[in-house]
Design a binder for these strands. Sequence first.
DNA 1: CGGTGGACCTGCTGGC
DNA 2: TGCCAGCAGGTCCACC
Length: 273
Amino acid sequence: MPELPEIEVLRRSLERRLLGRRVVRVRLRALALREPLDRRALRALGGARISALGRRGKYLLIALDDGRTLAVHLGMSGRLTLSPAAAAPEPHEHLAFELDSGERLRLRDPRRFGAAFVVPAGSLDDDAHFAHLGREPLGEPLAGAELARLAARGRGPVKSFLMDGRRVVGVGNIYATEALFRAGIRPDRGVRRIGAAAWERLARAVVEVLEQAIREGGTTLNDFTDGAGAPGEFQISLAVYGREGEACPRCARRVRRIVQSGRSSYFCPRCQR
DNA sequence: CGGTGGACCTGCTGGC
DNA sequence: TGCCAGCAGGTCCACC
């Protein structure tokens, strides 16, 4: 479900309401998400105060004032919301943190592809979850030459390359698809057959599509919301993702769908080569 | 080393 | 109306 823009929207929406809050109590209702939950380490967050909210790729990083970090990944179906502690647990609410504000930060995840774990003080860079993650595409904006360099020893289709978190983080199926449309590149084109100009267009398209999606509150296809429960609006701006058979917004040709590595790709056969 | 395909889960939808 | 195949925003690992 959530790619970089959704996690960034979530981070910003939770930041104001979580900073300075103390964790009063930790509630665990599941043994594992995509990996076992470390009950002892999670429970031991009780008493700590939240000092910062960060993000690395698709991981939300909740920093505590003693240096520990609570890392949360939403997988495909995860949601993280803040609501009054008195409200009953919601379906698939596997993990929750009661705060001194009288609210509860709730992690729901029907498919349990997400993750939640505690990173000890000072070891964020060493943690195996983050060790091999690639470059953040925003901040210092991604450049075409850099994409070309990252792909230099690779083969295979450009869409798989874009979605490979060891190269560039945060770009999933929706935003890889949309960036390729904006850059005019077919998702099944091999990285070996992409020239400098196309890499430049692609780098710019990735940055633009991610930034626009953040501005528009993320993409809500089914159930994404920010920390307050508000849906995003970028789904209105999707040019081709999920639009098989519809008219290309640029040339009105029918959008095609193909399957690559088991994932759907959508593209315009006229605008993308 | 790099790339692919399957596994991990539950829930919803669309076609019959 | 009801059932079920197919599909879903991600990641990891075994295998070639």
